[in-house]
Structure formats: C-alpha cells, structure tokens
C-alpha cells in the first residue's frame, strides 16, 4: 500500500518535477555559467572568467539603474503599505457595502500591466492628461509627469498606488482574524480608536504587514512592465527617459537588444544578490517589531 501510494504520488507530481528541472533548475545553473562567458547568441560562448562582473562595476548605466530602482522602491513600498493599511482599516470598520468596495478596489489589479503603462501616459500627460486637468481646477499648473526626469518616478509611484487593492484585500483578511475580545477589554479600559489601532490592531496584523513589506520590496526591485511600456516601447525614443531606466529594463535591453547574454546573466545574478541582501537586512531589522501569536518561530 505504502509503495503504491508513493508511486502514485510521484506520478502525479512528476509534471511539476520535470518542469522544475527543465525550466528552473537547468536555466539557473546555465545562467551562472553564461555569466562567466562572452556570448552573443550567434557565436559559441567564450569563457572570460569574472570579466562581466568587473564590467558591472565600471558600467555607469548599472549605477544609474540601481539608483533608479532603489529610489522607486523607497518611494513606493512605504506609500503603498500606508495607503493599503488605511483603506483596509476603513473598510474593516465600515458596516455596509464592504464586499462591494473590496471588489472595486481590487479591479485595477486585474488590468494588464501593459495597460497600466498606457494609462500612465494618458492620465499623466503634461498638457492634456486627466491628472493635470484635475489639478488645473484648483489653479495648479501640474508638472510634465512623463517627460520631466524629476517627475517620472513620482508619476510611476502614484500609478502604482492604483493597483494597491491586492494589499488591501490581504490586510483586510488579517484584520478579520483579530479576536474581538481584545478590543472589548481595551474599550473597558477606556482606550480610544487611535490607541486601539496602534496598540492592538497593528501588532496583531504585523506578520501580514511584514509579509507585504518584503514581497512589495522584492517586486519593486524587479519592476519592469509598466515603466517599459510607458517609456521604452519598441521604437519609442520620444518618451524614453533615463529616469525610468529600472534595473530589470537595463538587463532586458542588454540581453535582447544588444545580445550581450553573458553580461545580462551577470546583471541578473547581481540583482539576485542585491534582492537577497536587502531581504535579509529587512528581516533582521523588522523582526523585532513583528508579533507572532503563540511565540516567534
């Protein structure tokens, strides 16, 4: 029986194992090798040792792309977290139509990222965009969001807030799990709304906030589609802009526009190391503030 079960289990799970070996394990190993070669897809790869990694540190575009990506992450992740926490708290305390709002807020997340990139160009257009049209009502002369290097990243951050609905849904689910008794006894002790939120709600859902913080940061470091569509679409030089050159975009350009496969692989490994380092630091720094019910794991 046990043997039969194991055989069936392995049979059922084999598509996944095969997929993992062919489409994840092998490419990752191969990429580590490619990163040590000079390879233009047409000619055979030639081994160059750590040359690609040396080039990384001298390439000014790598510095620029890393800086852009960090700035975007630092601007967007906390903003998204604060906005989604605020909305989730409001929804949690609302009595009517919560389901409707939850659904509506999630809608943008279903929109293709390419469409989000196009929306960004239309809404944030300096002359005729909806945003500046709206600001104009109050006599504010809005900036050239899509062409002024200083305003490109704020525009991308604001646009990223549009798809904050998934975080709202996750936080809302966590809020529903906070035991009501905690609030009841706090009310008896005379704690107001702010105090209850800061002392009970936030600590109780801190594992969820922590999870979102890490996942959002990792995603921000890999941002690609929205910015690529808006500023780097094929043949698009009018809008292309150094301010929107995220690391993933530069990597993609190196691989498929300049056909520097070896160099692009080295770029990918640097990104991986950076992501790992940032995640570890975030975990070490924020772990002290995370409260796990039933003790820290």
């Amino acid at each position: 029986m046990r043997f039969v079960e194991t055989r069936a289990a392995l049979l059922f799970i084999s598509p996944w194992i095969l997929g993992f070996l062919i489409f994840t394990a092998w490419p990752v190993i191969n990429s580590a090798y490619l990163s040590l070669t000079d390879y233009d897809v047409i000619n055979d790869p030639s081994f160059v040792g750590f040359d690609n990694y040396k080039t990384l540190f001298e390439d000014p575009k790598v510095g620029l792309a890393l800086r852009n990506t960090f700035i975007f992450m630092v601007m967007s992740v906390p903003t998204q977290l604060v906005v989604s926490l605020g909305l989730a708290l409001l929804l949690n305390s609302a009595t009517r139509a919560t389901g409707f709002f939850r659904t509506a807020f999630f809608l943008p997340k279903m929109t293709p990222p390419v469409a989000v990139g196009i929306l960004l160009l239309m809404l944030f257009n300096g002359q005729s965009g909806l945003i500046n049209g709206f600001l104009g009502i109050f006599g504010i002369d809005g900036p050239a969001w899509t062409t002024d290097p200083n305003w490109v990243k704020p525009g991308l951050v604001l646009m990223s807030l549009w798809t904050v609905g998934s975080s709202v849904v996750i936080i809302l689910a966590a809020l529903r799990g906070v035991p009501q008794e905690l609030y009841d006894s706090a009310v008896v002790d005379g704690a107001g709304w702010w105090k209850r939120t800061l002392r009970i709600t936030v600590p109780m859902i801190s594992p969820t906030l922590f999870f979102l913080f890490i996942v959002d940061s990792i995603n921000a470091l890999q941002s690609f589609t929205e910015a690529y569509t808006a500023f780097f679409g094929s043949g698009n030089t009018t809008y292309s802009n150094d301010a929107a050159l995220f690391y993933a975009i530069y990597l993609f350009q190196q691989a498929f526009e300049f056909l520097h496969m070896g160099y692009a692989s080295a770029l990918a490994w640097l990104l991986f190391i950076v992501i790992m380092a940032i995640t570890v630091v975030q975990i070490l720094v924020t772990r002290r503030f995370v409260h796990y019910e039933g003790g820290n794991p």
């Binding site: 490419p27 191969n30 993933a248 498929f256 496969m261 990918a268």
Partner: peptide, 19 residues
C-alpha cells in the same frame, strides 16, 4: 525556491532553450 528566484536569472538560458 521557484518563488524566490527572479525570473531574470533564467531568462537568457530559457531563450536559448526555446531557440
């Protein structure tokens, strides 16, 4: 592990595999 690895790392070799 699959969830942790950025797609970018596998991209070049995947392209070659497809090719």
């Amino acid at each position: 592990v699959t969830q942790m690895i950025p797609l970018f790392i596998a991209l070049g070799p995947l392209y070659l595999l497809m090719s």
